[in-house]
Design a protein around this nucleic acid. Structure first.
Lengths: 249, 249
DNA sequence: TGCGTTTCTCAGGGAAATCACAGGTTGCCG
DNA sequence: CGGCAACCTGTGATTTCCCTGAGAAACGCA
């Protein structure tokens, strides 16, 4: 299965299958709130989502739905995550899997999970992170020539999702992990106003309980690094949110 | 059967058959978890994988699948590894074989086997090691002139997978086995951030149960030998992982 | 068996990142 | 023009992550 990309009129880059149909993703988690959250976010990417609450359902759905990627919680009620993985692999040998795992479980039995090019994120995750990892997995599982797709460009600002490198007008810029995710979210939605609530929901983990003004703070950080002494690209829409756009226009 | 190479847009070098179709590898082991792990990793190399759980199945599959290489566990339920080898050889006289053997198993019998150009690794192995050995076997079994493919180059740093020689700016550097494998993995993925989990999964043996900070430790060793007093090539992306890139950029 | 090498654990130090808080600034509306 | 709400940003506490020295254990080789 090879995967193509196209750019929608809104300027968002989408992954598509060769026949133009949407990418299909299977989400497996026993907590309904999590599958809901993920389904919502992934549908917003333009993908087609199916979900399952246990291993048995996952296998069944996979067989019939034939997803291009799977999001799989390692902690399921009926069977071990590794067992599910094995059976999934029998059905869909080449499908990449994104594992969800508890933060403190990382050490002991992650062994081998990422070996086949798969990936994992720890709970609690941020939606941007899940989406980014999934995009990476799907891109790499598909046919060749997807190099350019890992680079986001807005005006003279570029962000490479593989190397995590960011530069404006050719000059490299160092960003922290949170700054990077925030900028990625902005750049994936250029010229679109994003509310603080949206940003908080996508960039911060779903269990974040802090003050909402972290967004303001990190926008401030980003401006210092990206807009410093230049024509600003990050703009405030008072009462609405923030947006990024090329400096020229 | 001659084997060609090509370089994908991701910068990874792939082995291909002359007609452009993927290399075919047969994996034979009675432990399902091992065949799964290997299949996953080898598929990620872009190869086509078939697996068998015993000697009988191996012969059958080999006859029909006609692999370019075979990974063969010496300890199979139904017959001796040597017997399987003999029958395989009848079917596929020129196909190279990579033996899997327990660490404490008879070294002397193996010694004779590798004389024919075959190779072996001991369990528990690291995936990087298996992949590297297989690549070597396949390259050497194919048409000549694949010498250059065994050398990885990133900036002024070179690593020869055949001779295990490493040098930076022409100056030879001695690395231990683990350091070598870690550097190889980094250099096979230049300019790409690799997480500690990914590194552990590929470079350390699949049964490694230790602390994740061995990766930090070995990165530290590598830096001392490779970046010492020079423009650094190994970079930390805090919260994400490590990457290697030419010093220039 | 004995010795050098390699691998790995453990723990302390230190740097970086994250975030709360609070005071200052800006823009909007009456 | 005054007042309020929204936003910006400096400061510093806390946490998290990373680095590395020291030494124990395992390994390899003669």
């Amino acid at each position: 299965m090879s995967i193509m990309t196209t750019t929608s009129p809104q300027g968002r880059t989408e992954l598509l299958r060769p026949d133009g149909s949407p990418v299909r993703v299977l989400v497996v988690d026993d907590e309904m709130s999590i599958t809901e959250l993920l389904s919502m976010a992934l549908r917003y990417e333009g993908w087609q989502i199916r979900s399952a609450g246990d291993g048995t359902g996952a296998i069944q759905t996979a067989r019939e739905f034939r997803p291009d990627a799977v999001v799989l919680d390692m902690m399921l009620p009926d069977m071990d995550g590794l067992t599910v993985l094995g059976r999934l692999r029998r059905e869909l040998p080449d499908v990449p899997v994104l594992f969800l795992t508890a933060k403190d479980a990382v050490e002991d039995r992650i062994a081998g999970l990422t070996a086949g090019g798969d990936d994992y994120v720890t709970k609690p995750f941020s939606l941007e992170e899940v989406v980014a990892r999934l995009r990476g997995l799907i891109r790499r599982s598909g046919a060749a020539d997807r190099r350019s797709d890992s680079v986001l460009v807005v005006g003279d600002l570029t962000l490479d999702e593989d190397s995590h490198e960011v530069s404006r007008a050719g000059e490299g810029i160092h960003l922290t992990a949170t700054e990077f995710e925030l900028l990625r979210f902005l750049m994936r939605n250029p010229r679109r106003v994003l509310s603080k609530a949206q940003i908080l929901d996508r960039v911060w983990s779903y269990d974040f309980g802090g003050q909402a003004n972290v967004v303001e703070l990190y926008i401030s950080y980003l401006r210092r690094k990206i807009d410093a002494g230049r024509e600003p690209m990050i703009h405030t829409r008072r009462g609405a949110g923030y947006l990024i756009k090329p400096a020229a226009s």
